[in-house]
Simulated scan of single mutants.
Amino acid sequence: MTSAVQVLIFPIMDVADLREFYGSRLGQASRRIIAHRLRDRFGNLAGATVLGLGFTVPYLDSPVDGAERSLAFMMAQRGVMHWPEGEPNAAALVEECELPLLESIVDFALVVHGLELTDQPAEMLRELWRVMSPQGRLVMVVPNRRGLWARSDLTPFGYGQPYSRSQLQQILKEAKFSPVGWSQALFMPPSERSLMLKSAAAWERLGLRTSPAFSGVIIVEAVKQVYAVSARKRSRRMLPRLRPALAGPNAAKRPSK
């Protein structure tokens, strides 16, 4: 009951907050840990079309080498930032349930700070199914409802709706995805204390051995079920509904006119 009330009173976690978190010592430590666990999930992306949905830029900078194209879609209520830094922009502000893409063109999709922050998780997953190619792979990093990180608002993983493994299995099944791999990360307490940050690797080793069910996040890899037929046959616009805000690092904080 307490966690449900907290979800209602928390302010919106926008792109400026997310960027600030990943610039902090705790954010950098959590990024390293999650990126290490994701490395095995990316595999060979040579020639692939890669989509990041939510706030994935801390995890897309290095593993997408060799991909034909990489896109970073950020959810409309959260704001957007230019990405990659110093290169032509490949980021856009979108409605997560109305992606500006043709059907079956995404080979690999990564969702971080996405599923738990959307008001329509089932619809978002169905939309991802639509744009993914046959046997396309989806990897999601989702707060674990049994972990400490979902109970603390010191990090973005304490916002929105956390999930258990069984809940993720069910919602993926309903969206016509088949889970093919699971892993866990973030066993250290969500603390900025130097001792905690220095011992992060030890916490990970201990947690994986003794209490994997209590990780801070669950990482799930799923494959699109190619035999399923989408019931959604309406026409779609091929441009983002909201114009991306691309000017400068503080663009996400600027009020809309």
Rank of each mutant, 00 (worst) to 15 (best):
T2R: 13
S3W: 03
I9E: 15
I9N: 11
F10D: 13
P11D: 14
I12V: 14
A16Q: 15
Y22G: 05
Y22A: 05
S24L: 00
S24A: 01
L26M: 14
L26I: 14
R39T: 12
R41I: 08
F42K: 00
L45C: 08
A48P: 02
L51V: 02
G54T: 03
G54W: 04
T56I: 11
Y59D: 09
P63T: 09
E68N: 12
R69T: 07
S70C: 11
L71W: 09
M74Q: 15
A76E: 15
R78P: 00
V80R: 01
M81D: 09
M81H: 11
H82L: 08
H82Y: 06
P84C: 09
G86P: 01
A90V: 05
A91Q: 08
E95S: 08
E96D: 13
L101I: 04
I105V: 13
I105W: 04
I105D: 04
F108G: 09
F108P: 03
L117E: 08
E123K: 02
M124K: 05
L125K: 09
R126G: 15
E127T: 06
R130K: 10
R130Y: 08
R130S: 10
V131S: 12
S133G: 13
Q135S: 13
Q135N: 12
R137K: 08
R137I: 04
R137Y: 01
P143N: 04
R145K: 09
A150I: 06
F157A: 12
G160T: 07
R165G: 02
L168T: 02
L168N: 03
W182V: 09
W182H: 10
S183M: 00
Q184W: 05
L186A: 14
L186N: 13
F187R: 00
S191V: 10
M196V: 13
A200K: 05
E204A: 13
G207E: 00
L208V: 13
P212E: 01
A213D: 11
A213S: 06
S215A: 15
S215K: 12
G216E: 12
I218L: 15
I219P: 01
A222M: 01
A222I: 03
V223G: 01
V223R: 11
V226I: 14
Y227F: 02
V229H: 11
K233E: 10
K233V: 13
K233C: 10
R234T: 10
S235K: 03
R237S: 06
R237I: 01
M238D: 05
P244L: 05
A245M: 03
A247H: 15
S256F: 09
S256W: 11
S256M: 09
